[in-house]
């Protein structure tokens, strides 16, 4: 659905060559997938979205939205809905007029347009403010007006730049449900700073830093990549030296860390560089083999926050 290949965007246009806002970015978002775009400020998230919506031309590279290349901007824009950062809208208009204007620009016939406005007003919780001027609305409402405007023409693909900033916790839950529901049939690419939100909504995510793609994958894939392999935490009673020897014998390159002894119980961490290694299973069998009692065993979950810090060079 969204297919980006080697996208580049230089600051100040091609002639000035003042460095890159986005560098060699290639990724793929499947139909019916919600993709999260993460990264610190200035990582190139918004620039990427602006290129995909044909607002900024890429310095080089190509992308296809729903099979339509960026070279056909009208075609691309017809197939996608876009919520720009800060959800700009015509603040001098009331909500209905604003949505009507957007619908007319998409060429929606009058009857369809009014139906769609009613539908989206209820989906985005705008029924009470339809006749209010947009500049009188709170940030949360404005955000929802922008969201409704982006979905008015029932696009195949949605690109949402920070869709949940400025919303209160209740609204966040509503919008989360809305995006999830949309994600069942449509392709959604969204950027956000709110990591738990991305975790809750997105099927896959990618992290950008300094304009480059650092990592892309599901939450678990990201976590394992950030850890640099599998990490297993164990608590056991018995002969730890025998256990270590047995485990290392069965599974090469295991690393034992933080071995602590306390009241006859041993706590330790085992690492393995290969994320797909059967570490937990092997550890269990080794414990049985050396007659050690396994009291506790779990694979360590790295939080998305840790992944983010690891991938973007921030402090952990």
């Amino acid at each position: 659905m969204i297919h980006a290949e080697q996208l580049n965007r230089q600051f100040g246009g091609q002639q000035l060559n003042q460095g890159y806002a986005v560098r060699d970015l290639s990724f793929h978002v499947k139909r019916g997938e919600v993709m999260g775009l993460l990264g610190p400020n200035g990582a190139g998230k918004s620039t990427t979205m602006k290129m995909l919506t044909c607002f900024l031309p890429p310095s080089s590279g190509t992308a296809r939205i729903n099979g339509i290349p960026l070279g056909d901007p009208q075609g691309v824009r017809r197939t996608l809905g876009y919520l720009p950062e800060n959800a700009p809208s015509y603040s001098d208009l009331d909500v209905t007029s604003h949505l009507q204007f957007i619908g007319r620009m998409h060429g929606l016939p009058r009857a369809t347009l009014n139906d769609r406005i009613r539908e989206l007003a209820s989906a985005c919780g705008l029924e009470t403010v339809l006749l209010r001027r947009i500049d009188e609305l709170s940030k949360g409402f404005r955000q929802r007006v922008g969201l409704a405007a982006s979905m008015l023409h029932d696009p195949e693909c949605l690109i949402l730049d920070e869709p949940i900033t400025g919303l209160d916790p209740n609204q966040i839950v509503e919008i989360r449900h809305l995006i999830r529901r949309l994600g069942e049939q449509k392709t959604v690419l969204l950027s956000s700073h709110v990591l738990p939100e991305v975790e809750a909504v997105c099927d896959r995510m990618m992290i950008l830093d300094g304009g480059r793609l650092q990592v892309i994958g599901t939450r678990d894939e990201l976590a394992r990549q950030a850890q640099g392999g599998m990490v297993l935490q164990l608590r056991l009673r018995g002969n730890v030296a025998a256990f270590e020897a047995n485990l290392k014998n069965t599974l090469n390159d295991c690393v034992f860390e933080d071995v602590k002894q306390h009241d006859g119980e041993i706590q330790l961490t085992v690492r393995h560089h290969d994320v797909d290694a059967p570490l937990a299973e092997t550890a269990f069998r080794s414990a049985v083999a050396c007659d050690a009692v396994l009291l506790e065993m779990h694979t360590e979950q790295t939080s998305l926050e840790d992944v983010f810090h690891a991938m973007t060079g921030g402090a952990s």
Partner: peptide
């Protein structure tokens, strides 16, 4: 100034 140009320019309009 208000950023609505981005909204306008990403509608299917030349």
């Amino acid at each position: 100034k208000s950023g609505s140009f981005e909204l306008l320019a990403t509608l299917p309009v030349s």
